[in-house]
Design a protein around this nucleic acid. Structure first.
Length: 565
DNA sequence: GGGCCAATACTG
DNA sequence: CAGTAT
DNA sequence: GCCC
């Protein structure tokens, strides 16, 4: 067992078939492959070995073609790569595997070590493990954890007599692992996630959700999964079908057709990457053999003639799928705050969404506006409308995705310009007078962005570039910003809603339902009687959920009770 | 077999 | 109402 | 696809 007790990471990715071959060699000789996933830094240590693809190593054992190397890294993992550099982990050419095997001797000399260059001098970055990394875009996949007091579950609700111990807890401990590694669970979860995505593209959203929930509970499992039966017995969201698939995955290492990519799925995914294009339109266009937005405009102009936000969705397709560093979010907040002070000095604004959950990168910027003592949404609506218009005139707001008659007055020109470029007729629709929220595209003035690379899957096709307003290298990137309003009396409920995550909110709502209550941004209700809406903590209290800070309200890997059987 | 989070805004 | 968004 |  040449590689016994050794952990290997493969970079920039381990997806090629040659890499699969090497992985098999390593495993056969007792080594462990660390999956290059968002939580990778929790798994590896200083003795871990980083194997770098030969194509990126030159004859002097230095990294070469660094740009391409970085591009091959999943974009949301670039910061983890920086940590590899910071930690000075041992990096060697992956070819060394063969040398070691040939010599029957595992040894790294200083000559073998690859020189890693420092990536960015962002000295303020903290090496904590509590980071949340998210994909951008509105249809993002998330995999994280949420902590809800486990004294709340339907079973206890039915018989809320004696205090019960949690049988699941002890059971987990008794199933402790043997030879398998808990980290191998990640492999199963990854496979299920691919299936989830695939179902999502087909529009089978509940099936997709099932796979996602199954993947999440596998990720949170405290023991190594050794069989489908074991998983089904001990965990939520794993039924007969997924149980069978787990067995196949454990035995064969893959599932039939798992890695087969379909062009159809790719096309649908391409369209759905655009704001305002959902599964319905995407499928329709795919059915019509449409491959690009250009073709869609030609063949289906009616799908655009009133929905001008779609045109901006195409125009900013790439910019809007780039992750945003949280530091940039803070700059945006400041910009908005400065302008807000001029319009209504009593109105307050704060960041919500993934920023408030402590994410290092965010998909968009969610801002919540409120004013002490003010429950008048119409009044607040006017404030954010004026605010957005001022910011538009100052060239900070680039576009609106919701409108009002007042906004239409100043913004119609830009809409018409887009229609002209798109080459289709616009059909007008009447605008509303009042506003309750706004969706915007915004840009910081002359800011040299951005260390965060665009996911190659999110590139506009060449045929669609004629509509692009995306930033070029070195230019400021357009970001999606949402304005939401809260009545003063409902601030707590609103903060819960807009802080999320979506999955956290879902579970919270299920808990409320199980107590015959309901929760919305307007508050926590029982029989339509308001129980609480102002105080975030009180809402948690009444629901009998332990209050957790936003950082812990990330999704799915939950402390809700597991299946009790 | 029915439901899978709730509420709200906007359009065809 | 169905679809897309938050 | 899973849960009730």
């Amino acid at each position: 067992m040449l590689f016994y007790n050794k952990k290997f990471l493969i970079l920039p990715n381990a997806e090629s078939s040659h890499m699969q071959f090497i992985i098999k060699l390593i495993k056969k000789n007792g080594g462990a492959i660390v999956k290059w996933a968002p939580d990778v830094m929790k798994v590896i240590d200083r003795s871990s070995i980083v194997l770098i693809n030969d194509s990126y190593v030159d004859s002097n054992n230095k990294l070469k073609q660094y740009d391409i190397f970085k591009r091959e890294l999943r974009p949301w993992l670039v910061t983890d790569w920086e940590k590899v550099v910071d930690y000075r982990l041992n990096c060697v050419n992956i070819k060394k595997i063969h040398t070691w095997l040939d010599n029957g001797n595992f040894k790294i000399t200083s000559n073998d070590l690859i020189e890693t260059i420092s990536v960015e001098n962002s000295g303020k970055r903290v090496l904590d493990s509590q980071n949340e990394l998210e994909l951008s875009s509105n249809k993002r996949l998330k995999q994280n954890e949420m902590i809800i007091d486990n004294n709340d579950n339907p079973i206890e609700n039915k018989s809320n007599s004696g205090e019960s111990t949690n049988p699941k807890r002890t059971e987990i401990k008794s199933v402790t692992s043997d030879t398998n590694d808990i980290r191998d669970n990640k492999f199963l979860a990854d496979a299920l996630q691919i299936l989830s995505k695939r179902c999502g593209l087909k529009g089978e959203k509940f099936r997709a959700r099932s796979y996602q929930l199954a993947a999440d509970s596998i990720l949170k499992a405290q023991f190594a999964i050794k069989s489908g039966h074991q998983a089904q017995k001990n965990m939520m969201h794993i039924g007969p079908s997924i149980s069978r698939k787990i067995d196949i995955l454990l035995k064969e290492g893959t599932l039939p057709g798992l890695s087969v990519k379909s062009e159809k799925d790719d096309n649908i995914a391409y369209f759905m990457g655009c704001h305002n294009i959902g599964i319905g339109l995407a499928k329709k266009w795919e059915l019509l053999k449409i491959k690009t937005f250009k073709e869609a405009l030609e063949k289906q102009p009616t799908d655009f003639q009133t929905t001008w936000p779609t045109l901006f969705g195409i125009s900013y397709y790439e910019d809007w799928s780039r992750p945003i560093m949280r530091e940039e979010c803070e700059e945006h907040l400041k910009t908005v705050q400065d302008e807000l002070r001029l319009i209504d000095k009593d109105c307050k604004v704060e960041l919500q969404g993934s920023y408030r959950r402590g994410a290092k990168t965010c998909g968009d910027i969610d801002l919540l506006f409120y004013k002490e003592g003010c429950d008048d949404i119409a009044q607040l609506g006017k404030v954010i409308e004026d605010l957005a218009i001022s910011l538009y005139e100052r060239n900070y707001v680039q576009c609106f995705l919701l409108s009002s008659s007042k906004i239409a007055n100043i913004f119609d020109d830009k809409i018409n310009e887009r229609y002209k470029v798109a080459g289709i007729e616009r059909k007008y629709r009447k605008s509303n007078e009042t506003i309750k929220k706004l969706f915007l595209g915004v840009k910081l003035p002359n800011r040299n962005t951005d260390s965060l690379k665009l996911d190659p899957k999110m590139k506009l096709k060449d045929d669609d570039l004629f509509l692009s307003l995306n930033s070029k290298a070195g230019e400021s990137v357009c970001r999606r910003m949402d304005f939401f309003l809260s009545r003063w009396s409902e601030l707590g409920a609103c903060r819960i809603q807009y802080t999320g995550s979506t999955d956290y909110n879902r579970k919270m709502k299920i808990i409320a339902m199980n107590k015959s209550m309901k929760i919305s941004p307007h508050g926590l209700f029982k029989d339509d009687v308001l129980l609480e809406s102002f105080d975030e903590r009180k809402i948690f209290d009444i629901l009998n959920i332990k209050y957790v800070e936003p950082e812990q309200r990330v999704n799915t890997v939950t402390l809700l009770p597991d299946k009790i059987k």
